[in-house]
């Protein structure tokens, strides 16, 4: 079922790197550095603005991949990979979309497991890549039985 989803993408969604959201996120990971929070520090930096922490893209909306039904409950996050062309700037708009990168099955500690690779990407207004990311999500045999996938 997931095999057929490989290559499917969502529509792009416009997100904004909101100052308040960056502050809340920086607090939540205990990284209250002035480069994220203090406007003066941002202005004086090489970026001319505040930046966002590298794992901040977790908060963006990546749209919906039609036909992909993957309830959260029981999923295991196995791996996470970010690639950046440059840091995200506070206040900028980012156009985000998701893609099913891969799906494969393997026998392992949790039985007949499934592995789905979900890609989350962000571009600027001109369509230049700012960041790409991959999450490897593990579907245990128990999960696959319950969800019938």
């Amino acid at each position: 079922m997931f095999k057929e989803m490989i290559g499917k993408t969502s529509n792009k969604v416009k997100n904004t790197v909101e100052r308040g959201a960056v502050k809340k996120f920086a607090e939540a990971i205990g990284d209250m550095h002035p480069i994220y929070l203090d406007e003066e520090t941002g202005r004086k930096s090489r970026y001319g603005a505040n930046i966002a922490p590298p794992t901040f893209p977790r908060v963006f909306d990546y749209g919906v991949i039609e036909g992909l039904h993957l309830p959260n409950k029981g999923l295991i996050h196995g791996e996470q990979i970010y690639h950046y062309e440059r840091p995200l700037l506070v206040g900028e708009d980012v156009y985000c979309y998701a893609r099913v990168g891969d799906y494969y099955e393997k026998k392992g500690a949790l039985g007949e497991m499934g592995f789905i690779v979900l890609e989350n990407n962000g571009e600027d207004q001109e369509g230049n890549l700012i960041f790409s990311s991959k999450s490897v999500v593990i579907l245990s045999e128990a999960y696959r039985k319950v969800q019938n996938v």
Binding site: F25, A28, I29, G30, D31, H33, I35, Y36, S45, R46, I51, P53, P54, T55, R58, I76, H77, G78, E79, Q80, I81, Y82, H83, Y84, R86, P87
Partner: peptide, 23 residues
């Protein structure tokens, strides 16, 4: 997210280009 803060104070010198983690 916490782990990345080891690098935050170097922001004038560069940035994290790749960050890959196995849980």
């Amino acid at each position: 997210g916490n782990l990345a803060k080891l690098f935050t104070s170097y922001y004038e010198e560069g940035f994290i280009e790749e960050y890959s983690i196995r849980f």
